[in-house]
């Protein structure tokens, strides 16, 4: 992958921690508008059109620590009703959005959630009801999807700004906490596999280079 985004090493100077937060939800529920409202002018999205993906970088502070946040936003990829596995890869939190004006976007949450859990069984996930400015009455109603799964639930409006900043700041905190405490089993397994794979490849290469079947000390 030529455009493969960085690994999660805090690459920019000063950041002590780096997290990845992904946005999920149907087309036109307002994912990008929420991000833009949170970041205001501070955003410099990076379009990775080959992957139908937009990245927004943000510098945050959590408990005095500088945190580099990569927000991943879909750019049409949701139209395939599913995201490429790399979208979920090493994500530390998820923001799942629906449009309070459109039932189908609420119904689809269960599909998005199912896919999320296939790849990231443990990461924090926030459910977001967007566009409450269109009809404030919805905030007086109960939406059981989040409650059933014991997920945090926010009523927000990207237009008037209600609860947008709180949403993202809470998501960042959850992501950092997750990364520091989880010791995510799958992440560790993946890491082991990756380094194992590299070792194996380099051995294969050396085998081809010299024909002598000498044993090499494992390079670790």
């Amino acid at each position: 992958m030529a455009e493969r985004p960085r690994e999660d090493v805090p690459s920019e100077a000063g950041a002590e921690e780096a997290v990845k937060i992904i946005c999920l939800g149907d087309s036109a529920v307002g994912k990008s508008k929420l991000l833009e409202r949170f970041l205001l002018d501070g955003f410099r999205p990076q379009q990775l059109s080959t992957f139908a993906l937009t990245l927004y970088q943000h510098h945050a502070r959590v408990d005095g620590k500088a945190v580099l946040v990569d927000f991943w936003d879909t750019a049409g990829q949701e139209r395939f009703q599913s995201m490429h596995p790399s979208y979920y890869h090493k994500a530390h939190a998820c923001i799942m959005v629906f449009d309070v004006q459109r039932k189908v976007t609420y119904k689809n949450l269960s599909n998005w959630y199912k896919e999320l859990r296939e790849f990231r069984p443990e990461i924090p996930c926030i459910v977001v009801a967007n566009k409450i400015d269109a009809d404030m009455k919805v905030t007086q109603k109960s939406f059981n999807f989040a409650r059933k799964l014991s997920l945090p639930f926010y009523f927000v409006s990207a237009a008037d700004g209600t609860n947008v900043v709180k949403l993202f700041n809470d998501a960042i905190k959850l992501a950092v906490t997750y990364k520091q405490n989880s010791g995510d089993f799958m992440d560790e397994v993946m890491q082991e596999l990756e380094s194992f794979d590299l070792e194996k490849k380099s051995e294969d290469l050396s085998d081809q280079e010299d024909s002598s079947p000498e044993e090499k000390p494992p390079s670790s």
């Binding site: 609420y106 119904k107 269960s110 959630y113 109603k141 109960s142 939406f143 700004g161 900043v165």
Partner: peptide
């Protein structure tokens, strides 16, 4: 105002949005 926080409590007494009904067993 950049940071507007409004609490909308989701307690049991609220009227249902009506979108959950058919999918009680789904989730």
């Amino acid at each position: 105002i950049y940071d507007i926080e409004v609490e909308f409590p989701q307690d049991e007494q609220l009227e249902s949005c009506g979108w959950d009904a058919e999918s009680c067993e789904e989730v």
